[in-house]
């Protein structure tokens, strides 16, 4: 089983390396992270924190948008694209289960994504630490940011596979992926915001809202990074949002999502006839 998963992963990783996906994604991460870090370097003096802390706070916001985007971009083609190009039928006649195939792709894509995220956020973190100072606390925050961004990417990779298996064509899968990104990253928060405004400080805002926030992987990612560091929370101004939640809620959500989404993708994949 492991041999087959690794065989798929190796071939898949070669493909994403050769079509420059790894390079392009890494470049995007580096450029955005550096730009945000140095554009957002103003409030250090006012808040009395080092530049790396500020940088981590702004990169958290960046990663919420960029990690799901990159993950969906790489994942949407995984199944629908193979059906369309006619490569899936032959592979599936080998003694390889669909679950193994999915895991192999997941492994390769997650590695590619992890490279882009680690290099991108790491480079910006290093640059700000060198120019504006760092502390044990802010270095830890940076490490946590990178690790959780990879988890967030893992979750959207799996969601992308589900979209890819559910749609009949690569173009349809791309559309569905954009839809997923909009819903999870933009619309969900807007909806919650509207509900909170409407509720006007009532019981919804106090008891339901934090849980709904943690249920969305993108928000769970934000909560985890913010709740983990008082200083990051201070800079990002998001301290209040997750206050009513137990400490494990956001991490649990972010760890559970990739697993559930992979199971979902596996179920959707089962119905695909090449």
């Amino acid at each position: 089983m492991i041999t087959r998963i690794l065989a798929i992963a190796a071939a898949e990783f070669r493909t994403v390396r050769r079509n420059r996906w790894v390079f392009t994604a890494t470049l995007m991460m580096v450029l955005f992270a550096l730009a945000l870090t140095f554009a957002g370097s103003a409030p250090t003096g006012v808040l009395g924190v080092d530049l790396l802390t500020v940088s981590v706070a702004s990169m958290t916001t960046l990663a919420v948008y960029l990690a799901p985007f990159l993950a969906l971009m790489i994942a949407f083609d995984a199944i629908a694209g193979e059906v369309e190009r006619g490569t899936l039928g032959l592979v599936l006649t080998y003694p390889l289960s669909r679950g193994e195939m999915l895991l192999g792709k997941f492994l390769a894509h997650l590695t590619a994504l992890a490279i882009a995220i680690t290099v991108g956020l790491g480079a910006a973190g290093l640059a700000s630490a060198l120019s504006g100072g760092a502390s044990a606390d802010s270095l830890f925050a940076l490490t946590r940011l990178i690790a959780t961004a990879i988890l967030l990417g893992a979750c959207f990779l799996a969601l992308g596979y589900a979209a890819s298996a559910l749609s009949g064509s690569a173009a349809g899968a791309a559309g569905l992926a954009v839809g997923l990104w909009l819903v999870f990253v933009v619309l969900y928060d807007l909806g919650l915001l509207g509900a909170v405004v409407f509720d006007n400080g009532g019981s919804f805002t106090k008891s339901v809202f934090p849980w709904l926030l943690a249920a969305n992987p993108a928000d769970a990612f934000r909560l985890w990074n913010v709740a983990g560091s008082e200083q990051v929370a201070l800079v990002s101004g998001m301290a209040g949002a997750g206050a009513g939640l137990p400490i494990w809620a956001a991490p649990l959500s972010l760890l559970l999502w990739p697993v559930l989404a992979l199971l979902m993708a596996r179920l959707a994949f089962a119905r695909v006839e090449p």
Partner: peptide, 23 residues
């Protein structure tokens, strides 16, 4: 297969090695 298709970015040897491992 009737319409035989492979991963375009792999070399022939890499593609066949993948199949060999799967088999």
């Amino acid at each position: 297969p009737e319409q035989v298709a492979f991963h375009k970015s792999l070399t022939g040897r890499e593609q066949l090695t993948l199949f060999a491992r799967l088999a």
